[in-house]
Design a protein around this nucleic acid. Structure first.
Lengths: 138, 138
DNA sequence: GTAACTGCAAAATATTTGCATCCTT
DNA sequence: AAGGATGCAAATATTTTGCAGTTAC
Protein backbone atom coordinates (compact mmCIF):
# COMPACT_ATOMS: atom_id res chain seq x y z
CA UNK A 1 0.00 0.00 0.00
CA UNK A 2 2.95 2.30 0.47
CA UNK A 3 3.17 3.70 -3.01
CA UNK A 4 6.09 5.99 -2.39
CA UNK A 5 8.08 3.13 -0.95
CA UNK A 6 7.41 1.06 -4.02
CA UNK A 7 8.55 3.77 -6.35
CA UNK A 8 11.78 4.19 -4.47
CA UNK A 9 12.37 0.45 -4.40
CA UNK A 10 11.64 0.06 -8.07
CA UNK A 11 14.22 2.70 -8.82
CA UNK A 12 16.90 1.23 -6.64
CA UNK A 13 16.96 4.06 -4.14
CA UNK A 14 17.20 3.56 -0.45
CA UNK A 15 14.05 4.30 1.45
CA UNK A 16 14.31 7.28 3.73
CA UNK A 17 11.84 9.51 5.47
CA UNK A 18 12.71 12.56 3.42
CA UNK A 19 12.36 10.81 0.10
CA UNK A 20 9.06 9.24 1.05
CA UNK A 21 7.75 12.59 2.21
CA UNK A 22 8.71 14.39 -0.97
CA UNK A 23 7.25 11.63 -3.08
CA UNK A 24 4.02 11.80 -1.12
CA UNK A 25 3.79 15.48 -1.84
CA UNK A 26 4.11 14.81 -5.54
CA UNK A 27 1.63 11.96 -5.45
CA UNK A 28 -0.92 14.09 -3.66
CA UNK A 29 -0.47 17.28 -5.64
CA UNK A 30 -1.02 15.91 -9.12
CA UNK A 31 0.71 18.81 -10.68
CA UNK A 32 4.10 20.35 -11.11
CA UNK A 33 5.95 21.68 -8.11
CA UNK A 34 8.92 23.91 -7.58
CA UNK A 35 11.54 23.55 -4.92
CA UNK A 36 9.78 26.29 -2.99
CA UNK A 37 6.40 24.57 -3.27
CA UNK A 38 7.84 21.44 -1.73
CA UNK A 39 9.50 23.36 1.03
CA UNK A 40 6.17 24.93 1.87
CA UNK A 41 4.09 21.76 1.64
CA UNK A 42 6.31 19.68 3.83
CA UNK A 43 4.55 18.96 7.08
CA UNK A 44 7.72 18.04 8.89
CA UNK A 45 10.62 20.38 8.49
CA UNK A 46 12.80 19.28 5.63
CA UNK A 47 16.17 20.81 5.15
CA UNK A 48 16.35 22.95 2.05
CA UNK A 49 19.52 21.19 1.00
CA UNK A 50 17.93 17.78 1.29
CA UNK A 51 15.19 18.92 -1.04
CA UNK A 52 17.70 20.06 -3.62
CA UNK A 53 19.54 16.80 -3.43
CA UNK A 54 16.45 14.66 -3.42
CA UNK A 55 15.00 16.39 -6.46
CA UNK A 56 18.25 15.88 -8.30
CA UNK A 57 18.30 12.23 -7.32
CA UNK A 58 14.74 11.77 -8.51
CA UNK A 59 15.47 13.40 -11.84
CA UNK A 60 18.54 11.22 -12.31
CA UNK A 61 16.53 8.13 -11.46
CA UNK A 62 13.69 9.03 -13.77
CA UNK A 63 11.09 9.41 -11.04
CA UNK A 64 10.36 13.03 -11.82
CA UNK A 65 11.06 15.24 -14.79
CA UNK A 66 11.76 18.91 -15.16
CA UNK A 67 9.42 21.35 -16.83
CA UNK A 68 10.95 24.38 -18.48
CA UNK A 69 9.70 27.77 -17.33
CA UNK A 70 10.51 31.37 -18.05
CA UNK A 71 10.91 32.50 -14.51
CA UNK A 72 14.15 31.28 -13.07
CA UNK A 73 12.63 28.32 -11.39
CA UNK A 74 12.41 24.70 -12.35
CA UNK A 75 9.18 22.82 -12.00
CA UNK A 76 9.18 19.10 -11.34
CA UNK A 77 6.49 16.56 -11.99
CA UNK A 78 6.14 12.82 -11.58
CA UNK A 79 7.00 10.79 -14.60
CA UNK A 80 4.74 8.11 -15.83
CA UNK A 81 5.75 4.53 -15.22
CA UNK A 82 7.44 4.27 -18.54
CA UNK A 83 10.25 6.57 -17.53
CA UNK A 84 13.57 4.96 -16.80
CA UNK A 85 16.80 6.23 -15.39
CA UNK A 86 18.54 8.50 -17.85
CA UNK A 87 15.80 8.11 -20.39
CA UNK A 88 12.75 10.21 -19.75
CA UNK A 89 9.55 9.86 -21.68
CA UNK A 90 8.06 13.10 -20.53
CA UNK A 91 6.75 13.84 -23.96
CA UNK A 92 3.46 15.25 -22.84
CA UNK A 93 2.23 18.81 -22.83
CA UNK A 94 2.36 20.97 -19.72
CA UNK A 95 -0.23 23.58 -19.08
CA UNK A 96 0.29 26.66 -16.94
CA UNK A 97 -2.80 28.50 -15.86
CA UNK A 98 -2.34 32.25 -15.98
CA UNK A 99 -5.06 32.71 -13.41
CA UNK A 100 -4.32 30.25 -10.62
CA UNK A 101 -0.69 29.79 -11.61
CA UNK A 102 -0.95 26.02 -11.37
CA UNK A 103 0.98 23.81 -13.72
CA UNK A 104 -0.74 20.69 -14.92
CA UNK A 105 0.72 17.67 -16.66
CA UNK A 106 -1.47 16.66 -19.56
CA UNK A 107 -0.34 13.10 -19.76
CA UNK A 108 -2.79 12.34 -22.50
CA UNK A 109 -1.74 15.19 -24.76
CA UNK A 110 1.52 14.23 -26.39
CA UNK A 111 3.90 16.70 -27.92
CA UNK A 112 3.47 16.66 -31.68
CA UNK A 113 6.47 16.03 -33.89
CA UNK A 114 7.69 18.99 -35.86
CA UNK A 115 9.64 19.13 -39.07
CA UNK A 116 13.05 20.57 -38.31
CA UNK A 117 15.45 22.12 -40.80
CA UNK A 118 17.94 19.79 -42.47
CA UNK A 119 20.71 18.58 -40.19
CA UNK A 120 18.85 18.99 -36.93
CA UNK A 121 18.33 15.77 -35.03
CA UNK A 122 15.71 15.92 -32.29
CA UNK A 123 16.12 13.86 -29.14
CA UNK A 124 13.24 15.14 -27.08
CA UNK A 125 10.79 17.96 -27.07
CA UNK A 126 9.00 19.91 -24.37
CA UNK A 127 5.89 21.95 -24.81
CA UNK A 128 4.37 24.39 -22.38
CA UNK A 129 1.01 25.96 -23.04
CA UNK A 130 -0.20 28.96 -21.09
CA UNK A 131 -3.79 29.93 -20.73
CA UNK A 132 -6.86 29.35 -18.61
CA UNK A 133 -7.38 26.02 -16.93
CA UNK A 134 -10.76 24.34 -16.68
CA UNK A 135 -11.22 25.45 -13.08
CA UNK A 136 -10.56 29.12 -13.74
CA UNK A 137 -12.20 29.28 -17.14
CA UNK A 138 -15.91 29.59 -16.72
CA UNK B 1 22.30 52.10 -40.75
CA UNK B 2 22.11 52.01 -37.00
CA UNK B 3 19.79 49.08 -36.63
CA UNK B 4 19.77 48.99 -32.86
CA UNK B 5 18.86 52.65 -32.71
CA UNK B 6 15.95 52.05 -35.04
CA UNK B 7 14.62 49.21 -32.99
CA UNK B 8 14.72 51.30 -29.85
CA UNK B 9 13.05 54.21 -31.58
CA UNK B 10 10.36 52.04 -33.09
CA UNK B 11 9.53 50.76 -29.63
CA UNK B 12 9.40 54.14 -28.01
CA UNK B 13 12.44 53.64 -25.81
CA UNK B 14 15.05 56.24 -25.22
CA UNK B 15 18.34 55.59 -26.90
CA UNK B 16 21.15 54.94 -24.50
CA UNK B 17 24.56 53.38 -24.80
CA UNK B 18 23.71 50.39 -22.68
CA UNK B 19 20.60 49.54 -24.62
CA UNK B 20 22.30 49.89 -27.95
CA UNK B 21 25.15 47.68 -26.78
CA UNK B 22 22.87 44.92 -25.55
CA UNK B 23 20.84 45.06 -28.73
CA UNK B 24 23.99 44.81 -30.82
CA UNK B 25 24.95 41.69 -28.93
CA UNK B 26 21.62 40.12 -29.77
CA UNK B 27 21.78 41.21 -33.40
CA UNK B 28 25.23 39.74 -33.80
CA UNK B 29 24.69 36.52 -31.91
CA UNK B 30 21.66 35.24 -33.78
CA UNK B 31 20.73 32.92 -30.98
CA UNK B 32 19.38 32.94 -27.50
CA UNK B 33 21.38 34.51 -24.73
CA UNK B 34 21.25 34.44 -20.97
CA UNK B 35 21.95 37.29 -18.63
CA UNK B 36 25.38 35.79 -18.04
CA UNK B 37 26.10 35.50 -21.76
CA UNK B 38 25.43 39.17 -22.20
CA UNK B 39 27.57 40.11 -19.27
CA UNK B 40 30.42 38.16 -20.80
CA UNK B 41 29.99 39.42 -24.35
CA UNK B 42 29.85 43.06 -23.41
CA UNK B 43 32.98 44.78 -24.61
CA UNK B 44 32.51 47.73 -22.33
CA UNK B 45 31.70 47.01 -18.73
CA UNK B 46 27.99 46.99 -18.19
CA UNK B 47 26.57 46.97 -14.74
CA UNK B 48 24.87 43.71 -13.88
CA UNK B 49 21.83 45.57 -12.65
CA UNK B 50 21.53 47.53 -15.87
CA UNK B 51 21.46 44.27 -17.77
CA UNK B 52 18.65 42.95 -15.60
CA UNK B 53 16.65 46.09 -16.08
CA UNK B 54 17.34 46.37 -19.78
CA UNK B 55 16.31 42.78 -20.45
CA UNK B 56 13.10 43.35 -18.56
CA UNK B 57 12.43 46.53 -20.51
CA UNK B 58 13.04 44.74 -23.79
CA UNK B 59 10.68 41.93 -22.86
CA UNK B 60 8.00 44.41 -21.85
CA UNK B 61 8.43 46.30 -25.11
CA UNK B 62 8.31 43.18 -27.21
CA UNK B 63 11.85 43.47 -28.53
CA UNK B 64 13.00 40.19 -27.09
CA UNK B 65 11.17 37.17 -25.75
CA UNK B 66 11.96 34.63 -23.10
CA UNK B 67 12.70 31.01 -23.78
CA UNK B 68 11.87 28.49 -21.09
CA UNK B 69 14.70 26.30 -19.86
CA UNK B 70 15.17 23.63 -17.25
CA UNK B 71 18.23 25.07 -15.64
CA UNK B 72 17.39 28.04 -13.51
CA UNK B 73 18.22 30.54 -16.15
CA UNK B 74 16.14 32.43 -18.64
CA UNK B 75 17.21 32.69 -22.22
CA UNK B 76 16.28 35.70 -24.31
CA UNK B 77 16.07 36.05 -28.04
CA UNK B 78 15.12 38.77 -30.47
CA UNK B 79 11.53 38.77 -31.55
CA UNK B 80 10.55 39.00 -35.13
CA UNK B 81 9.22 42.31 -36.36
CA UNK B 82 5.66 41.24 -35.80
CA UNK B 83 6.03 41.35 -32.04
CA UNK B 84 4.40 44.23 -30.28
CA UNK B 85 4.50 45.46 -26.74
CA UNK B 86 2.59 43.16 -24.47
CA UNK B 87 1.71 40.86 -27.30
CA UNK B 88 4.45 38.52 -28.32
CA UNK B 89 4.32 36.35 -31.37
CA UNK B 90 7.15 34.11 -30.37
CA UNK B 91 5.28 31.10 -31.55
CA UNK B 92 8.25 29.39 -33.09
CA UNK B 93 10.20 26.39 -31.93
CA UNK B 94 13.45 26.73 -30.02
CA UNK B 95 16.20 24.22 -30.41
CA UNK B 96 18.85 23.49 -27.81
CA UNK B 97 21.87 21.57 -28.99
CA UNK B 98 23.00 19.03 -26.44
CA UNK B 99 26.51 19.10 -27.86
CA UNK B 100 27.41 22.76 -28.23
CA UNK B 101 24.74 23.99 -25.81
CA UNK B 102 23.60 26.71 -28.17
CA UNK B 103 19.98 27.65 -28.37
CA UNK B 104 18.62 28.49 -31.77
CA UNK B 105 15.37 30.19 -32.71
CA UNK B 106 13.69 28.36 -35.54
CA UNK B 107 11.64 31.23 -36.79
CA UNK B 108 10.31 29.19 -39.65
CA UNK B 109 9.11 26.27 -37.54
CA UNK B 110 5.94 27.30 -35.81
CA UNK B 111 4.59 25.61 -32.73
CA UNK B 112 1.80 23.27 -33.76
CA UNK B 113 -1.60 23.59 -32.15
CA UNK B 114 -2.59 20.80 -29.82
CA UNK B 115 -5.97 19.58 -28.80
CA UNK B 116 -6.43 20.33 -25.11
CA UNK B 117 -8.91 18.71 -22.75
CA UNK B 118 -12.31 20.34 -22.43
CA UNK B 119 -12.28 23.62 -20.56
CA UNK B 120 -8.67 24.54 -21.18
CA UNK B 121 -8.20 27.72 -23.13
CA UNK B 122 -4.73 28.19 -24.63
CA UNK B 123 -3.25 31.67 -24.94
CA UNK B 124 0.21 30.85 -26.11
CA UNK B 125 2.47 27.87 -26.42
CA UNK B 126 6.20 27.37 -26.21
CA UNK B 127 8.14 24.45 -27.53
CA UNK B 128 11.73 23.55 -26.88
CA UNK B 129 13.39 20.72 -28.76
CA UNK B 130 16.67 19.25 -27.60
CA UNK B 131 19.02 17.33 -29.82
CA UNK B 132 21.92 17.77 -32.21
CA UNK B 133 22.20 20.92 -34.26
CA UNK B 134 23.34 20.94 -37.86
CA UNK B 135 26.83 22.04 -36.93
CA UNK B 136 27.42 19.31 -34.37
CA UNK B 137 25.56 16.56 -36.18
CA UNK B 138 27.78 15.12 -38.85
C1' DG C 1 29.80 -2.55 9.34
C1' DT C 2 29.72 0.18 5.35
C1' DA C 3 27.93 3.11 2.23
C1' DA C 4 24.69 6.28 1.56
C1' DC C 5 21.71 10.10 3.29
C1' DT C 6 20.87 14.09 6.18
C1' DG C 7 21.35 18.49 8.53
C1' DC C 8 23.95 22.36 9.69
C1' DA C 9 27.13 25.96 8.60
C1' DA C 10 29.14 28.56 5.32
C1' DA C 11 30.44 29.83 0.76
C1' DA C 12 29.25 31.11 -3.72
C1' DT C 13 25.70 32.96 -7.00
C1' DA C 14 21.97 35.31 -8.48
C1' DT C 15 18.38 38.82 -8.12
C1' DT C 16 16.09 42.94 -6.26
C1' DT C 17 15.77 47.50 -4.23
C1' DG C 18 16.97 52.33 -2.88
C1' DC C 19 19.13 56.28 -3.91
C1' DA C 20 22.10 59.80 -5.85
C1' DT C 21 23.89 61.13 -10.27
C1' DC C 22 23.95 61.47 -15.14
C1' DC C 23 21.88 61.32 -19.72
C1' DT C 24 18.08 61.77 -23.19
C1' DT C 25 14.55 64.32 -25.01
C1' DA D 1 14.17 71.41 -17.10
C1' DA D 2 12.00 66.93 -16.26
C1' DG D 3 11.73 62.28 -16.50
C1' DG D 4 13.99 58.36 -17.23
C1' DA D 5 18.29 55.44 -17.13
C1' DT D 6 22.47 54.16 -14.89
C1' DG D 7 25.82 52.72 -11.35
C1' DC D 8 26.87 51.69 -6.83
C1' DA D 9 25.90 49.74 -2.39
C1' DA D 10 23.35 46.83 0.16
C1' DA D 11 19.64 43.78 1.11
C1' DT D 12 17.46 39.31 -0.34
C1' DA D 13 17.10 35.05 -2.25
C1' DT D 14 18.87 30.93 -4.29
C1' DT D 15 22.04 27.18 -5.00
C1' DT D 16 26.27 24.64 -3.94
C1' DT D 17 29.77 22.55 -1.06
C1' DG D 18 32.10 20.38 3.01
C1' DC D 19 31.81 17.83 6.83
C1' DA D 20 30.25 15.36 10.90
C1' DG D 21 26.63 12.63 12.59
C1' DT D 22 22.92 9.37 11.53
C1' DT D 23 20.33 5.90 9.05
C1' DA D 24 19.34 2.10 5.72
C1' DC D 25 20.57 -2.25 4.18
Amino acid sequence: MDQSKNILKRNGLSITEGRKLILEIFLQSMGALSHADIEKSASVSLDRVTIYRTLQTFVDSGIIHQIPTTDNTILYALCKDSCEAGHHHDNHVHFICMECEKTICMDEVIVPKVQLPKGFEPVNAAMVVKGMCSDCHN
